[in-house]
Design a protein around this nucleic acid. Structure first.
Lengths: 238, 238
DNA sequence: GTATAGTTTGTGGTCAGACCACAGCTCGTC
DNA sequence: GACGAGCTGTGGTCTGACCACAAACTATAC
């Protein structure tokens, strides 16, 4: 009597989770066809599809129509997408206040850059892509949207350099959740060229602090960088 | 030509997200009945159901059968559930290494207790529930499972006291993702009474550091508390 | 023997319809 | 007025059907 009236789609979800935990399913593997899964678990195909839809949004599987090895539902375990959907929708539904999202970014990104700076004292983490993005951002013909996209890439590249997949995915989700606000805020700025120039300088100083191993300086720089932008666009006042 | 071949369930998801963003839907509101939603959006009911399932797992809605005001799909925006599902499944599918989950907990919980300690210097955050949980944990007749459940509650209560919903939900998700590992690890300990007694002392010292406003001490205490347990159960070696 | 074109097969994507369980509401009876 | 039976609207589930698509297969032409 462990499970009373478990819903059909949850049966499917639990079965897949168990298969993952017990090693019967691993990234790259195919799930059985929907019709087979339905028959095996004794549920309808529509219930199977509801569970697969959840797995897809959560970034666990990728589905493709057709035939052959690339078709069907394949375990991919790509955490970014699911995190972004979750955070975006929770912010939209007012489950996550924007201010809390920003504060969490401060914590995570502060920790990321501090960790990178520490690492720089003993080894040389790969920060070339971060540096390349900064160079690309110095192109003066960028639109606001292009600039913000590169800005997002820069922050993401730092997270990736930290090597922590959980922090990277979480940060990407937080970022995408408030992307709309960042875009909207840019429109209300007094002077975009002035702001973007300042952001660039701050990016440079963050990277410099990391490369020279100044953990605390890097942390403070990235935190004031983030909170400064959102204060300027008055997002936290919402 | 903004949307080429958007899948039917995504149409529904986008419509709901837009309604949320534009304020046509707010927490507490009812979604239209599935059949109505299907007709309005020009999709089949099963596609609507796939989208609603996603929203439900993400913690955005709650569904109930029957009739009357409490029936139907209601916006609830409860972030905890979605975060837990996401993290649990990602860990199961090896998208999130357990070591990264633990490291992220170190960052977030360290920040939580440091923030609480700072707050204690100027005001008095409500930490009574945290203290009550600690008292309950001193009951010597607790089983391992009961102790671990209270342990989880203690950490969660600290997060809640911080007032940051995003950090709280994320931390709860991280915790639940590795709950199975924590449980399994407890079985392999040399001496559970000895370990649980040590954990209790650490809890007390964490709370004491917070209440006396020692931010750095609190941060270090909680971090060594967490990493100590996982090192002892050799989870990070996986 | 090879290359091409047509066919078959297996898959997810979608829809329509049916039925059930359930919770509240309505209305008639006492 | 109180109670109960039936009605209504809702989500939960299943079935069957059809489509689109991509690969594998097969037959044909050269």
């Amino acid at each position: 009597m462990t499970a009373i009236s478990l819903r059909a789609w949850q049966v499917v979800l639990d079965a897949v989770e168990l298969d993952l935990l017990e090693g019967r399913l691993s990234p790259g593997d195919h799930l059985p066809p929907e019709r087979t899964l339905a028959a095996d678990l004794g549920v309808g195909r529509s219930s199977v599809r509801e569970a697969l839809r959840v797995l897809e949004v959560l970034g666990l599987i990728r589905t493709a129509v057709g035939s052959g090895p690339s078709a069907g539902a394949i375990i991919v375990a790509r955490p970014g997408g699911g995190m972004s959907s979750l955070m975006r929708l929770q912010v939209a539904a007012q489950g996550f206040p924007v201010a809390d999202v920003v504060k969490t970014r401060l914590v995570l990104e502060g920790s990321i850059v501090a960790g990178l700076a520490e690492a720089c004292r003993t080894s040389s983490p790969d920060l070339t892509s971060s540096a390349q993005i900064l160079t690309a951002m110095e192109e003066h013909s960028l639109t606001e949207a292009e600039f913000l996209a590169l800005d997002a890439q820069f922050h993401l590249s730092l997270a990736e350099a930290s090597g922590n997949l959980v922090i990277t995915a979480t940060m990407a989700g937080l970022r995408s959740a408030i992307e709309g606000y960042a875009r909207a805020g840019a429109l209300g700025l007094a002077s975009w060229p002035k702001t973007s120039a300042r952001l660039m300088l701050e990016h440079r100083s963050i990277l410099r602090a990391i490369l020279t191993g100044q953990a605390d300086a890097a942390r403070l720089a990235v935190q004031s960088h983030i909170s400064g932008y959102y204060a300027e666009t008055q997002l936290t006042a919402h």
